[in-house]
């Protein structure tokens, strides 16, 4: 099967602001030689601690940043070579859900316009009644009533905001969803609602999903395959259950051992 999302030998480094005029600018290599492929209906979990490069991988996959070298392929097409205009025209096929539901919605925008944003770019000629209907039905799909359309983000709880963010991500019916810690900022009782919703939607839309998290329990619950990253490098990759039951790399073993467990 052709992977819906593919990355080949991604490299990305950042130049740190120099501490003083006399020093040379330090570079940090955020991502080194990362390759991955995700098929339709499949979830790839990426696990790592802060500074492991997992969020950089997310931004590279989304083409929000350009890699120093390597390629990102959306449905077989290399997007690193596209012009900004060509890239914008393809963005409706890949969407993202962010960690902080308070920072990912524009506080000055009504929910209707927030959710419709990807639609406005993908189908600018959509009639306003149709636009509203599409947004309302997607909001309903994530568990919110149509009466939220004219309200503003501050009127919602974290869990509700994350539902709104998911509706925005899916309103153009993308093939690929990148979720960067989508449940980490939520209370436990709400977290399960969002995780269930994501796994339902993944099945319903046949999404290829990249799920990034520091929480091993959640990644184990949601992913078919997983990657473990440390210092910008993939140290282990494989079927999720295989990684958990027979971790090959010492760092994976350390992570699993450090994970706080309920009654064993």
């Amino acid at each position: 099967m052709i992977p819906v999302l593919e990355a080949r030998a991604l490299e990305k480094s950042y130049i740190l602001p120099r501490a003083s005029w006399l020093e040379r600018r330090a570079r940090i290599e955020a991502v080194k030689d990362v390759s991955l492929a995700v098929a339709a209906g499949e979830t790839l979990g990426i696990v790592g601690e802060s500074g492991s490069g997992k969020s950089t991988v997310a931004r590279l996959l989304m083409a929000l940043e350009k890699p120093d070298s390597g390629a990102v392929l959306w449905q077989g097409e290399d997007v690193t070579a596209l012009s900004p205009r060509q890239l914008r025209a393809r963005r409706h096929g890949i969407q993202m859900v962010f960690q902080d539901p308070y920072g990912s919605l524009d506080p000055r925008m009504r929910i209707l316009d927030t959710v419709a944003e990807p639609l406005d770019v993908a189908e600018p000629d959509l009639a306003s009644a149709e636009r509203r209907a599409r947004v309302a039905s997607m909001l309903e799909r994530v568990g919110l009533n149509a009466d939220v359309l004219t309200r503003y983000p501050h009127q919602f709880s974290g869990g509700q905001r994350q539902r709104i963010a998911i509706a925005r991500a899916l309103v153009t019916r993308p093939r690929i969803l990148v979720a960067d810690e989508p449940a980490s900022a939520l209370d436990v009782s709400i977290q399960a609602q969002i995780l269930n919703l994501l796994s339902d939607l993944k099945a319903e839309f046949g999404l290829a999903m990249v799920f990034i998290s520091h929480d091993l329990g959640i990644v184990r619950y949601l992913s078919d395959r997983m990657m473990v990253m440390q210092h910008g490098v993939v140290v282990e990759e494989g079927e999720t259950e295989r990684v958990f039951t027979a971790p090959a790399h010492p760092y994976t073993r350390a992570l699993i051992a450090a994970m706080p467990k309920l009654v064993t």
């Binding site: 931004r59 989304m62 929000l64 914008r88 025209a89 963005r91 409706h92 890949i94 969407q95 993202m96 962010f98 960690q99 902080d100 920072g103 990912s104 919605l105 524009d106 927030t114 944003e117 990807p118 406005d120 770019v121 993908a122 963010a165 925005r168």
Partner: peptide, 10 residues
């Protein structure tokens, strides 16, 4: 993040 989301929206 909402700026990133807008960029991702195209």
């Amino acid at each position: 993040d909402y700026i990133r989301a807008a960029r991702a929206a195209g």
